[in-house]
Simulated scan of single mutants.
Amino acid sequence: MDPRRNPYVPTAGAQPPELAGRSSFLIQAEIALDRALAGRYAKSFIAVGLRGVGKTVLLNRVAELAERRSFRFAMIEAHEDKRLAALLAPQLRRMTLELSRLGPLTGPMKRLGGVLKSFVSSVKVTVGDIELGIEVPPETGSADSGDLEADLPELFLALGKAAQDRGSGIAVIIDELQYMEERELSALIMALHRTSQSSLPVVLVAAGLPQLVGKIGKSKSYAERLFDFPPIGPLDPPDAERALAEPAREQGVDYTEEALARILALTKGYPYFLQEWGSQAWNAAQASPITATVVDRATEQAIESLDRSFFRVRLDRLTPVQKRYMRAMAELGPGPHRSGDIASMLGRKVTAVGPLRGELIAKGMIYSPSHGDTAFTVPLFDEFMRRAMPFEPG
C-alpha cells in the first residue's frame, strides 16, 4: 500500500497515532498538576519500565498537559557523561525568564533571580548572561556553596515561590533518570521534599529503567514515600490490538484476526515493536485486509530494521568483554537468569564477573529484577544477540 499513507511511527519518543493503554498514567499526571496549581500537596512520580514501552512518549504528553495548564516546564534527558547541574541550569534560566515576563517584578521574582545567579556561579556552568529585565545581584549565601545537596533545595524553593507568586507552576520532566549519580539523585529528592513540605507548585515527573526504584531508595530512605513509581510495561492484548489496528482502520485498512494475533505474539505487546511491525506490514501489503501471509513477509523487514537501529545502537556502546557477557546471557534465553549461571557460561566465578555485571547495569543494558537475578533491559535482546554474534563458551 501507499507508504505515504503509512500511519505508524517506529521512532524513539515519537507520539504513536493511537496511545492505547496509558490512560491511568496520564490521569495521574493531570491530577498531580491540577493539585499543585491549586496549592495542594501533589505527589511526584517516576515511571519505570524496560526499553520500548513508550516512557519518553508519556513524558512528552505530560509536557503537553503541563503547558496547557500554564506551567513552566523543564524537559531534560539525563546522560552518563553530563551532570545534573549542567542539564538543569539552562532550563532553570529559561523558566525564570518566562516567569519574569508574566507581570511586574516582585519580591519572590527578585529573590529567584539572585539565587539563580548564585547557583550558576557556584556550579561553574555557562548558560549565558541571566537577563531578567533589570539588574538583580547574586544572593550571597543562598545556593552558592557548591554542594548540590545544599544548593538545589534552596533554588527549587525560590523557583516554587516565584511560580506561586505568578499563579503558575513548575514541572521538572526528566527522562533516563537512572543515569544520574547517587549524589545528584539525593539532591533532587531533597529539593522536591522541601517544595512539597511548603505545598509549592513544583512537580517532578520522570522515567527510567527498573533499577531506578532501588537506586532512589538507597539514595534517600524517605524517597519511596515522596514518589509514586508507576510501572510501564507491555500492552495487554486488547490495548496492543487497538494500538495496531486503529491507525490502519482510520485509513480504511483492516487486519485479519490471524494477522493481528501473529503480530501480537511476535511483539509481545511492546509499543515500539508494534509500531515497527505495523509499519512493515503496511508497506508489504497490496490491499486491505492485511493477512498473516503479509505479516510473515513483513517480519523479515521488521527484524532487519530493528537490528540495524534499535538493537545495534545499544550493542555498539559495549566493549568486547561486555558483549561477551551479554551473549552468554542470550544463550540462556530471554531471562531473567541467575548470575551464577551466566558466570558458568563464561567459565568464570561469580565474583570475577561481578564488576562486569555492574558496568552493564550502569550502562542501562541489564538490571536485577530480584537479588541474584539478571535480565535484559531491552525486550527481545536475547534473540538479537544470537543473530548478531556467535557464542564462545567459557
Score class of each variant (00 low, 15 high):
Pro3Ser: 15
Pro10Gln: 09
Pro10Trp: 05
Asp34Glu: 15
Arg35Met: 05
Ala42Ser: 13
Ala47Leu: 14
Arg51Ile: 05
Val57Phe: 05
Arg61Ile: 01
Val62Gln: 06
Arg68Gln: 15
Ser70Val: 02
Glu77Gln: 15
Arg93Val: 15
Arg94Gln: 14
Leu97Thr: 12
Leu99Ser: 01
Leu102Thr: 12
Met109Arg: 13
Lys117Gly: 10
Lys117Tyr: 01
Ser121Tyr: 10
Val123Arg: 08
Lys124Cys: 06
Val136Thr: 04
Thr140Leu: 05
Asp151Leu: 02
Phe156Lys: 06
Leu157Pro: 01
Ala162Ile: 05
Arg166Ser: 04
Arg166His: 03
Glu181Asp: 07
Glu182Gly: 00
Ala191His: 03
Thr195Gly: 03
Leu204Arg: 02
Gly208His: 04
Gly217Val: 00
Gly217Asp: 01
Pro238Gln: 09
Pro238Trp: 13
Ala265Thr: 15
Lys268Val: 00
Glu276Gly: 08
Gly278Met: 12
Ser279Asn: 13
Ala287Gly: 06
Asp296Trp: 01
Gln322Pro: 10
Arg327Met: 09
Pro336Arg: 06
Pro355Lys: 11
Glu359Asp: 14
Ile361Gly: 03
Ala362Ser: 12
Ser370Gln: 15
Ser370Arg: 15
Gly372Arg: 06
Phe376Met: 11
Leu380Ala: 12
Glu383Leu: 15
Glu392Ile: 14
